[in-house]
Design a binder for these strands. Sequence first.
DNA 1: CGGGACCTTGATTATCTTCAATGCTAGTGG
DNA 2: CCACTAGCATTGAAGATAATCAAGGTCCCG
Lengths: 240, 240
Amino acid sequence: MTAPHEIHRPRSTLAFEKTLASYGALADADLAAARSVLGALQSHPPDKQIGRGGRGGDEPLVVVEGWVGAVEPLEDGRRQIVALFIAGDVLDPSIDCAAGLTATTLTAAWTMPAGALRAAVEAGCAGDGLRRAWRAARAAADARLVRQVVRLGRMSALERTAEFILELLDRQQRSGLARNGRIDLPLTQEVLADHLGLSVVHMNRTLQQLRREGLIVYRAGCLLIPDPDRLARAAPRAAA
Amino acid sequence: MTAPHEIHRPRSTLAFEKTLASYGALADADLAAARSVLGALQSHPPDKQIGRGGRGGDEPLVVVEGWVGAVEPLEDGRRQIVALFIAGDVLDPSIDCAAGLTATTLTAAWTMPAGALRAAVEAGCAGDGLRRAWRAARAAADARLVRQVVRLGRMSALERTAEFILELLDRQQRSGLARNGRIDLPLTQEVLADHLGLSVVHMNRTLQQLRREGLIVYRAGCLLIPDPDRLARAAPRAAA
DNA sequence: CGGGACCTTGATTATCTTCAATGCTAGTGG
DNA sequence: CCACTAGCATTGAAGATAATCAAGGTCCCG
């Protein structure tokens, strides 16, 4: 279980619990129940397929550490990273890998199987709070996919990037991973480009522009957002 | 109930039944059950909001006739039509209008409330075939959203358009609306552009290119695809 | 006949991609 | 300790793709 690629073995599923709780108040009993039905920690090297889409056979995974993408590679080498999953998220291949996507690690990662948890929620034998939070977290994942369509369809590179960073900030605040506007972003610019629908070169230039304007400070896998409101002004707002 | 905008009152929910059946074999009893719990036909003028997203309060709708979009308008006038719903589709605002989208008619349309049907399926008091088909249809809608992300993120205008037309062909074949590669497409190029993430002008030129190459014949709300395989060659394929 | 909605066209500009290097840094083996 | 390498970030230049601007054109309808 210990491999060279390995990042430190995570000590807890705190990120998951916080994320879930951010979507609906959880009683201690809910938390204990959720924790108790999660499977064993699994380690994955970067760039490894960990779930296949399609037939809905795979059980959901809690991402405990690292980054995972729902990826569509095209024949000619292009690829689209449709969705990103980070510590605290639940990746359900039967939903998130629709249309033949492949769940792939983008960094070294640790996960826990959550089939039993989903089963408990679906069978109605989970607490009310837990059920609500689980559903809300699922709805949030769907909403992120919608945001992604809007970003790719109607926003410029700068707007996309700004909006994306704000989404990451929100998500990492929920999971407790963000501190004072400082978030993890241990992805190569190539991965970011494949998520935001840009070329690597343009991704690089767009990040530089955000830096030049002081909207972000980005270095060594770590991103600081000095003023989220100002960054938000670089992204379009929805109409009333 | 009869208004000037009105298109003819649909005679049946056949498109819905065929679509559902295309996702899973349905017994006659299933069909009868589904038909019997649908609500009353409702007529809507074009460009009218018929469902709001967010809180999941709204009940699902079967689109019986016409085209409906899940739309995100931006403050500055841009808009993204995130998903399209056509005759035979079920639009569930609690899912399809996530992230604040608005369900809006793109043409005159007729719908039927399907809250009771969803409730029956979820409560498990629907037949096995019906439940399976309902779930598969829902999964197909999710998969379409994923395709949309791939299209917008990684395909050129021509590829997007080709792929989109092929999707429409598949959907209208399921609902029985396509005849010999001939499908309805009663949308303005502006609407298409807002769905495919293009400017109207570029949408126009892209359609012209497809016409020039003989891949489509498009006129007066009706689109003919002489050779779907050839059209498919204009769209990128997924890698193994 | 006039007006409006939609489609089409040409010219211009902006955004983004591609190509081809160059630098930087961390890891590796001599 | 020092090449040497590999992966990633960055840069410049050139070209492609798509947006924008500004007219016309067509068709339908009142």
